[in-house]
Nucleic acid binder design. Sequence first.
DNA 1: ACAAAAGTGTTGAGACTACACCCATGT
DNA 2: ACATGGGTGTAGTCTCAACACTTTTGT
Lengths: 241, 241
Amino acid sequence: MRNPSEQNYIQQLSIDCVIFGYHDKQLKVLVPKLNFNGDFWALPGGFVSQDEDIDTAANRILQQRTGISEIYLDQFYIFGKAARNSLIFMNKLIALNPQLLSENGQHGKEFDWFTRRFVSIGYYALVDLNQVVPEKTDLDSSINWYNIKELPEMIIDHNEIVERALNALRFNLDEKLIAFNLLPETFTMKDVQELYETIYDKPFARNNFQKKILDLNVLERLEKKFTGAANKAPYLYRRKG
Amino acid sequence: MRNPSEQNYIQQLSIDCVIFGYHDKQLKVLVPKLNFNGDFWALPGGFVSQDEDIDTAANRILQQRTGISEIYLDQFYIFGKAARNSLIFMNKLIALNPQLLSENGQHGKEFDWFTRRFVSIGYYALVDLNQVVPEKTDLDSSINWYNIKELPEMIIDHNEIVERALNALRFNLDEKLIAFNLLPETFTMKDVQELYETIYDKPFARNNFQKKILDLNVLERLEKKFTGAANKAPYLYRRKG
DNA sequence: ACAAAAGTGTTGAGACTACACCCATGT
DNA sequence: ACATGGGTGTAGTCTCAACACTTTTGT
């Protein structure tokens, strides 16, 4: 990433993305680790160009990190506390990475850009984890899926952003029928149920759950899935359309 | 209002408020008319100071316009299309108000400030219309309550903002029990019902509605309200707490 | 035949709807 | 007494949770 202070971005406005994936009965979030001395994690984020819709910007950021172009995403909250700046982060960062000062100068453009207060638009995205090829930017030393219950401590309020994203996800799940974005193209009813149980962190009755989901009338039943297990083979389903 | 370009505001970020009131079985929105030649209406709005939470800024803006300090408000959406700028508005404005050019200069700070693209945070507020004393700013020629079905054509996307605010209001009404913010301190059950019927634009059954509202368990029953009409006097209610 | 897991049916409780009835109030 | 509008009760329908039972599959 080039120096954002030199790009034609809207100042003091950022986008932070909570990218949800699902695997092995666990809800995961894609989080990069920053490429500096010290342990700094931050949600995938970015800025909005002057000639770019904010939704387009969020899409661009998500495509950069996941490689997926058609992605489900939803703007869920604006984080705008006056104290939302990177000062604490930058101080720790520079204490551990003194070479940054000589490179940029404490009063250089980039330092000024980053230490100002930011208003951030929170988006959450739902992806099929298997289709994602996580991509680092120049700023990242790594990018990994973390179980949502075992997230690292992130900078500023990013842990709170994830919490709010999860609440928004739970709130919208039934309303907008978006859970299937977290699953592969075909799946069994048990997959769907385990996904719901993971998201809401509570069990559902098998028969009633099946009825409820099928009554939504958005799934088509395909052939059976024979796993070789000594039991009745479940049907595979796929989203209609 | 002083020249915002000289204030220490976050640039290209604005707040637009949809202030809902209720009177005479009609849902109303408080809309100022701008103090220029030509018919320009715009939602009450403002900017965010560098040291101010966005919620605090919204509160400040609402207090300025309504005189009420403790106000119910809710951030509901952020409007961030790249084409969201005041160019069309400013061109019309200057065509009708050529003196503005000589006062500020077409390339003056204020002109630059206003014609850039803005990202705007949408808030809606619920107020007891009777407690509001609408206040003009220096920019306004008038400020009035408009029936939501008879709003004037406003600048940029402000009519769309109202639509989205109404949807958010409907969506949150049951969840958050916020309707009573639109009513005076005491009210009859019929008042509540008519309010709901106005907001959702559909009728409710009287007995069932009463049961539903009372089952919420947030109202306390007070004395009866004798109007002098030749019928049973309805009870007054008030929010608990 | 058996165990394991999937599919389906049934029943009861609670929520919501529609209809009906009773009560208070001023003329 | 009567009309008007407010308060309350009840039966039917719908939804959802809990239980039970049947079917399919490989060993």
